[in-house]
Write a protein that binds this DNA or RNA. Structure first.
Lengths: 350, 350
DNA sequence: GAGCCAATTTAAAACGTTGTAAATTTGCGG
DNA sequence: CCGCAAATTTACAACGTTTTAAATTGGCTC
């Protein structure tokens, strides 16, 4: 344990300062230990004596050592990276923001970095997934807007690559997911409109290919049937339609016979577009018609307090997804790696 | 060039398939060349014969070789990564989206990956910059919302780290930037309101600490003074204020004596909030008051076509920033690495 | 103090790539 | 067919880390 025979000359330390990059070697030279030992000590390996463990940690902290991620990655094959696949559609109005907020929180304090892979690259989302798998760009993947037989999910399952989706699928093999109970949302929203005495309700549904289209439709229809209420469902329109298309549709429809006067809007943009379309006809929110909207940011209720909203806490979803993914990467079995969020009545307190 | 003596047994290829990861070694074994040669050939080094160069490329393509980024990074010290620092404030309503779209386009076809470092991590943006520099997490950095003496810029300049900002600073040392001519925007917007015959104009300014606060103020004041128009500037409010605060302010102010009837809104959220605040008082856009807004997405004009808008093409800005950064990383001098975008009258065609 | 086990430390190899320097082949004049 | 330069290919050593297997130390018993 004598650390005097090696003069521990100040070269390494000074050197580390000059090149700005202390490595295990630097610490080894300073402490007079072997590189292996230093590595072990920092990794809190069991066979290292408490004294050296402490000393190594001290020195490491002192010279500001940070492990070289490239080297770790090369050696271990693990990237310590979690990647989020962002779909253009979910980026508007801060979907990405909230989810990523939660993810960042879940990854806080772990060795994992969060990397956003924007989907714009070129082709479909599947290409991006393929690229990430084959290039070993990440240890785990997170994405949303699943389809019942989502090709990304299939690809990941086939390759045994850890992932968590936001949204369910209908594969027989289970996988980790976090989802919002859109059935419950649609049911509650429609119910509220009916209870308010609205004559005829309608809903703007997600694109048909997405899994939650069915959930949403089912919730809406259940509420409608229970109450024996009148309803209609716009065919040429979905949640991804541009705002002007939604606005124009609402405006046009409201001038035709027997228009709906209760709108379930599972998105803030669609709610705003609906308001504008109706007010173009001189119809006023809360007067001639009502809206119950799903709200994922504070924006809508801030601007238009008269819109009734039901919250989806995307930050919580992100945090949950992050935690599930870490477990999944750690090799935990899929069971219990699924979460269904219930709709919330008030804005989540951060 | 005979490639028969080494039986080129199918082991390496099969092996590569099994582990899923062809390396230089795999190609070397298949072609019977040395690893170094393969590396050279793929790098299109001059001293490689055309025949082997071609052959190596063929094989590489065939087995789907992709260089291991971790190894490259470890060896060369270059990460081939460009990082975007996202500030929470710019993420709402797709700022991040548009800029990243442009960035992705600029990086298309290069070896560079785009990585988004969300700022939520914990502390200030400066910490994130520091972390990236010290950890060598990227070869270049992009961020926005600069202050006149932005600490991030100072840090990066001190370390000679390549970066491009969205927004200018007042440092004496020049640096690469892309900025929007906010003076021109504010001037034009105010001018339009005055020309429309508005009695009293106002503007919602950015937070004081940001560089473009001055530009914006200056443009507004220039138009006001030229025309000798009446004006006012809300003190307790800025572009980052929550929408309800802006809405409430507008509503309150419009009930007091001598309220403004021309609003320059350098942001879409502030424009929406203003509309709501005014319509709560029964005042109608284009009638009792007008708005000229800065528009960075298609959302606002889709929902409210009556708002006059002046466009800022953030996608183009992103693309420009990407290109500048690549040049900067390549060691080009700063001169000519600055771009000032002019306001645009119509939505940019993609 | 020899012998032995456990505790602790170490040397050496490897991950996949690139840079340096040296080796091999080729072409060509004599 | 030798010699010699140019053209082409090669071996070897890194980059910083972890892993495997081996070496060293210390503490004990006899």
């Amino acid at each position: 344990m004598s650390r005097i025979e090696k003069p521990a000359d100040s070269d390494p330390a000074r050197n580390a300062l000059r090149t700005g990059k202390p490595t295990l070697k630097t610490i080894a030279e300073i402490t007079g230990l072997a590189i292996t030992t230093v590595s072990r000590a920092l990794g809190n390996a069991p066979q290292i004596s408490e004294t050296t463990r402490r000393r190594v940690h001290e020195v490491a902290a002192e010279i500001g050592y940070l492990p070289d991620r490239a080297a770790q990655r090369l050696k271990t094959g693990r990237t310590n990276v979690v990647s989020v696949l962002l779909d253009p559609h979910e980026e508007i109005l801060g979907f990405g923001t909230s989810i990523m907020h939660g993810l960042a929180r879940a990854l806080q304090g772990t060795a994992y970095h969060l990397i956003v892979t924007p989907n714009f690259l070129d082709g479909s989302n599947v290409d991006a997934v393929n690229y990430i798998i084959r290039n070993g760009m990440a240890d785990g993947l997170i994405f949303s807007r699943t389809e019942p037989f989502d090709p990304r999910v299939r690809l990941l399952l086939e390759n045994g690559f850890p992932f968590v989706t936001h949204g369910r699928t209908e594969f027989s093999i289970p996988h980790a997911f976090v989802d919002y109970d859109n059935f419950a949302f649609a049911y509650a929203a429609t119910r509220r409109l009916i209870v308010k005495g609205r004559r005829k309700v309608t809903i703007i549904l997600p694109p048909r290919r997405l899994t939650f289209y069915q959930h949403m439709l089912h919730g809406f229809m259940t509420a409608v049937r229970e109450a024996g209420a009148a309803y209609e469902i716009p065919e040429a329109l979905d949640l991804d339609s541009p705002a002007d298309m939604i606005r124009d549709y609402v405006r046009r429809r409201s001038a035709e016979p027997d228009p709906p006067d209760g709108f379930a809007c599972p998105g803030e943009v669609s709610a705003l577009a609906t308001i504008t379309g109706m007010s173009d006809r001189g119809l006023s929110l809360g007067g001639e018609y009502d809206i119950v909207a799903k709200q994922t940011s504070r924006l809508l209720s801030q601007i238009q307090p008269k819109v009734e909203t039901i919250y989806e806490d995307l930050t919580a979803a992100g945090e949950a997804m992050g935690r599930l993914l870490l477990k999944r990467i750690g090799g935990e079995p899929i069971e219990d790696l699924t979460i269904l969020q219930s709709p919330q009545l008030s804005f989540p307190t951060p």
